[in-house]
């Protein structure tokens, strides 16, 4: 399959990429290409130009300082999964990145491309929402920073403007007594998420002091399972307590929003979602204090 014709520009810096974007209104950023190239081959999009940011080194890498983890937009899924720092300080993110697609996909795909594409069947939007990530964006109006609930707007749509570039993602390191985890019901053929549950739990002597639970895969954009969070806080994190809290998952799922397809109907996804929430919370709790 051949993509439609386009002009190709390789940007050497974020400033050059921004300038190319403003000069080519119909252009698209190219990062790893693992969502964009398939889209072009299927001719679901026909941008006039691609602006390749793949060689802008400052957009790559993971840095931890004073409690904050900063991840460059070009950092690959393989780098996230292999990062000892993330394994220690943002377990759910390293875990989820290691479950994306297959090894060759993880070698090319980037965190920035993943969230900018905002496929509901992706893994990283729900994990980053759960961990309280912020998105650093550069555009003609300068820089701005958005929280996950503002960044993810809906089905394959984000708050990123056509002339904006996502440069980095920041998230807080796991604090004392905090643990996080990701549980994924992967489509057996595509490996994309049918349901992905991300959980972060803070505990003190086995009692939950704070919880963040976010679901993806089954809704257009990540959904916070508030009823589950409320049911966990103040409780001792036993299997029974986690099981009963997980049963509140459906309260946060709007029937009109739950996605279904030939593989997994909306009703089926809604029925099994609590199981994946329970698994994520149980794993997060086992890593908490």
């Amino acid at each position: 399959m051949y993509a439609p014709e386009f002009q190709y520009y390789r940007a050497a810096s974020v400033a050059e990429a921004a300038e190319l974007l403003s000069k080519n209104p119909d252009a698209k950023i190219l990062a790893g290409g693992h969502s964009l190239i398939p889209v072009l081959k299927l001719r679901l999009a026909a941008p006039s130009a691609l602006i390749d940011i793949g060689r802008i080194e400052v957009l790559r890498g993971i840095e931890c300082s004073s409690g904050t983890i900063r991840i460059g937009a070009l950092t690959t899924h393989a780098e996230l999964a292999a990062s000892a720092e993330l394994r220690a300080r943002a377990q759910a993110l390293a875990e989820a990145a290691g479950m994306i697609g297959d090894p060759a996909v993880r070698n090319r795909g980037t965190i920035g491309g993943n969230v900018a594409h905002a496929d509901p069947a992706s893994d990283l939007p729900q994990v980053l929402s759960c961990l309280g990530a912020e998105f650093l964006i550069t555009g003609p109006q300068g820089e701005r920073r958005l929280g996950a609930s503002e960044f993810f707007e809906g089905l394959m749509s984000t708050a990123l403007g056509e002339d904006e570039i996502l440069t980095a993602i920041e998230l807080p390191e796991a604090g004392a007594g905090e643990g996080s985890a990701y549980a994924k019901f992967a489509h057996p053929a595509s490996r994309y998420a049918v349901i992905g549950a991300a959980a972060k739990v803070a505990a003190n002597n086995g009692t939950c002091t704070a919880a963040s639970v976010v679901l993806g895969g089954l809704c257009p954009a990540p959904v916070r399972a508030e009823a589950v969070e409320r049911a966990l806080v103040g409780r001792s994190l036993t299997d029974e307590a986690i099981g009963s809290a997980s049963r509140a998952t459906a309260e946060s799922l709007d029937d009109d929003e739950v996605l279904g397809d030939v593989y997994a109907s909306a009703g089926y996804r809604k029925a099994v979602a609590p199981v994946w929430v329970r698994r994520a919370v149980t794993a997060a709790a086992s890593r908490s204090g």
Binding site: Y8, L30, H34, I37, G54, A78, P103, A104, N107, R108
Partner: peptide
């Protein structure tokens, strides 16, 4: 699948210019 700078990559999902 080929090895691109030492790591596996699906060459049907990569542009030659990349």
């Amino acid at each position: 699948t080929v090895l691109l700078d030492g790591v596996s990559a699906k060459s049907c999902t990569c542009l030659a210019v990349q």
